[in-house]
Each structure stands twice: as structure tokens, then as C-alpha cells.
Design a binder for these strands. Structure first.
Lengths: 201, 201
DNA sequence: CTTGCATTTAACCGGTCGGTCAACTAGCAT
DNA sequence: ATGCTAGTTGACCGACCGGTTAAATGCAAG
């Protein structure tokens, strides 16, 4: 059991940085197997297809975030709007450290995969959509609490949360196009200026 | 000469919708040649490499936009901030019509390619960066004129322009993840709420 | 000691990848 | 008529693609 689990997790560990730094299509199963020291047949014992592997990778990234930066940022002890500052900071420092190690801004793997595969694979698109949906909920809760506390004017929390998520993804995209995490530092804080008013009624 | 030009443009015409609707890696030269009714050797007479083809495709999309929606939106006759409304509208209707014809939200080819290739090909990244840079300039001019006309409070036009471009790309990304152009309609107008203040001095 | 299952091995599948090559054709200028 | 060049043809290259297969393991429960 343990060895088996080990093989499976070695495969995922080999796949993660590759999918993050390149693209879904550009990373082959053969390469992943060689890097993980696993035979191809063994790979297909654990993963029915390449798609299933990338879904496992998505889950790992999502867990990593949810239990790491995101948990820290959305700490209920922080004033609501400061959580958003914290999240932007965390994204900035993360991308910066990746660039220092890797030489490249890799961006957000969820955004990367979304633009690459979502026209070609509805199952993967649904998976990524669920990730974004959860992220949006975090923003939404925060905005609701901020409005309740009176630290921001009332607004449409649902739409504004979605707008903020969009902005974050867009800033990361632009930063990647410049291979420069400083874009996140410059543009990130403006996320709090985004507002969508609540419709009457 | 004419026939030659025709072959070249048939290749580009075949490649454009494919790169837009799938991805760089997922579209093969063979498929493009078959669709264009061109032999592979003939392809390589006109394009030294696949990268050169996609650069030509990028140029065509950029020209199309610059002479189409963008030229209409950034009409000096319009009040500055209305130009931005117009651009968002144009992006929305464009994506909507694509979805009606194609069944899919294809998003922005520049954003798509940026996230797919910019860690792997600095020449393509530079090409895409130049496109974004021009787009940012359009926003910047508009913001400067709006500020000069007093229709918005003074701000850092350069940074706010970059933020707006990021937001637009982010909204398109999220819309693509939902395969739903209505996201553009819901979130797009909030682009005008983005503000980055000018630093003192 | 044996049965049975999870795991591993390595060869193998048809197909596609980006790119090359040498021979050939057509049109134009000398 | 001849030579040059732009363009075209179709076969060919080695490498890799995602995925399959059958036989060999290791291991644990009966």
C-alpha cells in the first residue's frame, strides 16, 4: 500500500512543476514517468488517462493554496479588507520566489490550464470552474463581512467578488507576459477599487 | 506573385481559427496544410517554422482588431470614458457571436497564447507583449483625455491603463472558464471603477 | 503452501509531431 | 532557346504522442 501510494505521489510530484511551468500539451507522460522513475504501464495502473493525472495535479495545487496562503490571508482575525491585501501580497511573493528559483514567472496554473484546454475538454473546464467558484466565494464572504462592518460601502458582493477574481487572474496574465512579478506589486492593490453596485430591489 | 501570395494567405486563413479555438501545441502543421490545400514543403517555403506562422496569425488578429472594433471604440469623437464602454461592448458582442457560430467562447487569442507559450518561447512572448503594450497605450491616452476634460478625477493614467487591460483579460478568462460571454456583460462595465492614484510629486 | 490480487516490467501499437529533401514545374528575362 | 528563380510536390526523417498488452513480480490472507 505504502509503496503504491508512493509511486502515485511520485508521479504527481514529477508532473506538478512541469504542468505549471510549461503547458498541458507540452508535457508528455513519458517524460513524467522517466522523472518519477516509473514505468509507463505502472503510470496507467494509477491514472486512467493524462486528463486524470492533470486533475490530480489541480487538486494538489488547490489544496496547497487552500491550506497555505489562502488560509493565512482569509484569517477571520484580520479585518476583512486586509485579507485581500494579504492575498495579493502572498501571490506576489510566491511568484517572485518562483522566478528567483526557476528564472520564470509561471503564473497561475488554474488560469494557464483554463485558457489552454477549456475549449477542448469540458470535464477539465468544469474542474477548473469549480476551483474558481471556490475562490470567488472567499472574496464574496470577505466583501459581505466588510460591508457588514461598515468598512466599505454596500455593493453587489457576488459580482464584485467575481470581478476581483477576474482582476487577479488578469494581473497575473500580464505579469507573465512581462515575465515580471513586480507587475503584481504595482497593479495588485487596485483590486480594492473594483466595485459593482447592488441592483435596486 | 499573386498565386504565391494566395498560398501564403490561405495557410494563415486556415491557421487563424484553429489557433484561436484550440491551442498552439494542439494545432499541427499537417492539419493546417490539409485544410489550406497546400503541401507541407510549400508551407515551409513561406514560413521558416511554426513559430513564424503563429506570429503572422498574431499580426492578422491584431490588425483586424486595430482596424475594426478598436478603431470604432477609440473614436476621438466619442467622450473618452464612453470609448471604454464601447470597447467592452464590442468584446462582448464579438465573443457572443463567436459562441453562436462555434458553440464555444474562444476568448482572446493574445491572452490564450501568452499563458501557453510565454514560459517556453521568449520571441513569442515579446511579440505578445508588444500587442499588450499597444492596447495599454490606447487605454492610457483615453484616461489622459478624460482627466484633462475633467470627466474623471486625476489618476496615474499609465498604471490604471495597465490595470484596465489586466481586468479585461481576466474577465475574458473567467468567461471562457464558464463558456459564457454573459460574464463579459456582467463584469465588463466595472472596468471604469479601477483606479490607481498618481504618486505625489 | 497456495491462491489471489495489486503492482511492475518492457515491449509494442498506430498515429502524429515539426521539419527536410531532391526533384520537378512554371513563368520571366536575357 | 536558355538560364534563373519562385513555387510546388510528395516522400521521407527521427522523435515523440497517449495508450495497450501480456507476462512477470511481490505480498498478504487462507
Amino acid at each position: 500500500m505504502n509503496i503504491a501510494t508512493d509511486t502515485r505521489s511520485r508521479i504527481i510530484a514529477a508532473a506538478k512543476p512541469r504542468f505549471h511551468s510549461r503547458s498541458y500539451a507540452n508535457v508528455g507522460i513519458q517524460e513524467i514517468c522517466e522523472s518519477a522513475g516509473v514505468q509507463k504501464g505502472s503510470f496507467y495502473h494509477f491514472f486512467p488517462s493524462k486528463r486524470d493525472l492533470v486533475m490530480a495535479v489541480i487538486d494538489e495545487f488547490a489544496d496547497e493554496w487552500a491550506n497555505g496562503f489562502v488560509a493565512e490571508a482569509f484569517d477571520p482575525a484580520l479585518p476583512p479588507m486586509e485579507r485581500i491585501d494579504y492575498l495579493i501580497d502572498a501571490a506576489y511573493f510566491w511568484q517572485k520566489s518562483i522566478k528567483q528559483v526557476h528564472g520564470r514567472m509561471l503564473g497561475c496554473i488554474f488560469g494557464n490550464l483554463t485558457l489552454e484546454v477549456s475549449t477542448q475538454d469540458d470535464i477539465l473546464r468544469a474542474k477548473l470552474l469549480a476551483i474558481f467558484s471556490r475562490a470567488k466565494s472567499r472574496f464574496k464572504e470577505t466583501l459581505e463581512q466588510a460591508a457588514a462592518a461598515g468598512s466599505i460601502a454596500p455593493l453587489d458582493a457576488d459580482l464584485t467578488a467575481e470581478a476581483m477574481l477576474a482582476y487577479l487572474e488578469g494581473v497575473i496574465l500580464l505579469a507573465k507576459s512581462q515575465n515580471d512579478p513586480e507587475v503584481l506589486y504595482r497593479l495588485g492593490p487596485a483590486i480594492k477599487t473594483l466595485r459593482i453596485e447592488a441592483t435596486a430591489g
